[in-house]
Simulated scan of single mutants.
Amino acid sequence: MFRTFALKMAENAAKRLKTDNGVVAIATHNGHFHADEALAVHMLRTHIPTYSGAKLVRTRDPKLLEECHTVVDVGGEYDAARNRFDHHQRTFATTFPGRETKLSSAGLVYMHFGREIIARRLAQAEDSEQVGMVWRKIYESFVEALDAHDNGINAYDSAALAAAGVQKKFSDGGFTLGAMVGRLNGNWNDPTPEDPAAAQEAEDKRFTQASQRIGEEFDRDLDYFTQAWLPAREVVAEAFNGRQEFDSQGRIMVMKRQSAPWKDHLYTLEGEQPEGSQVLYVLYPEKPVPDAKWRIQCVPVAKDSFESRKPLPEAWRGSRDEELDGISGVSGSVFVHASGFIGGNKTFEGALAMAKKALEI
């Protein structure tokens, strides 16, 4: 398997390789930079061997762009065979497989090179099931938001929100990765070198800093989804398949050894099953040690929702220790959060008893 993987990687690199005196040049536009081209450049230069040590050219000059091996976010052309990845042309409407958000240069580069990035990290073939799973997950959890931000696509239908009379309670515009990159641009009244070459050099340094900064966040996601999220699937699947041991309807899922990221995998596993009862409570030890305390967590109605499918009983909420023992009728109780989404007990048996009682209320 690994030999096939290595040969495929070498073949892909050879097909893409077209250098000038041994140096590959990546071009993007100069001027005000954005998160999408900053990430696109990072993915290529950091994770694809063809672009290791690549020269960066920031220009809008068509003649200079034509001389470059790869062009992102400028040039008015999308042609993967020629390594042209712009999305600003009027006819552009490409989306990631299975998604509706129009791609930016980040999404384009990720769509074409993301499998190779992940395959190298996992040492698997690009067409393996696990590579495909992580490829889709990183797009949906990280890259897609950058695509939407750059293309001016709102997370919610503005007209529907207005019709419902829903208004934002606060501004979160400065809290995004796009805003973080944007702040690395120079201010309008910053001193600028009079020499055009020096001014461009200063601007390019800022872009390089932005590309590295957003690249750090991408790399953290890459590490998480390949090293933690993906291995968690096996742990969650084991707990999901054994859930009838604790409740005949399968409403309680227990991760016996230790906690692992479970929400994504649980929703996927439920979707693969025939219609039946949903998991309502997930039990797991706080630490992977024999005498660990146990948590009981409610399954949200959706991954990013604060609303639980079945919150812990209202009478238990905000109580702790002996007081909670008396209210719940379960000894060893530690706490139940004021919102009812999570609670704890000193033992597994106690946490399971809390879950079973909560099902009845």
Rank of each mutant, 00 (worst) to 15 (best):
R3K: 12
A6R: 12
A6I: 12
K8R: 13
K8G: 05
K18F: 10
G22M: 07
V24G: 05
I26R: 01
H29Q: 07
H32S: 11
A35Q: 11
V41A: 06
M43W: 01
L44W: 08
R60W: 06
D61Q: 03
D61H: 02
D61R: 01
L65D: 03
C68Q: 07
D73V: 07
Y78I: 02
N83F: 05
R84L: 01
Y110H: 10
I118A: 09
L122T: 11
E126N: 06
Y139N: 08
S141N: 13
E144H: 03
E144G: 03
E144P: 05
L146H: 07
A148C: 08
N154A: 15
A155Q: 13
A155S: 12
A155W: 10
S171R: 09
G174I: 03
G182W: 09
T192R: 14
A197Q: 15
E203D: 14
T208Q: 13
Q212T: 15
R213H: 09
E216V: 06
E216Q: 15
D219F: 09
L222E: 03
F225H: 05
T226M: 05
Q227I: 01
A228L: 14
W229A: 14
R233P: 00
Q244D: 09
Q249H: 11
M255A: 06
P261G: 09
W262L: 05
Y267G: 03
S277E: 13
V279H: 10
L280R: 12
A292G: 06
R295K: 14
K303E: 13
K303L: 11
S305Q: 10
K310T: 10
L312W: 13
E314T: 10
D325W: 14
S333N: 05
G340F: 01
I342R: 00
G344N: 01
T347I: 02
G350E: 08
L352A: 01
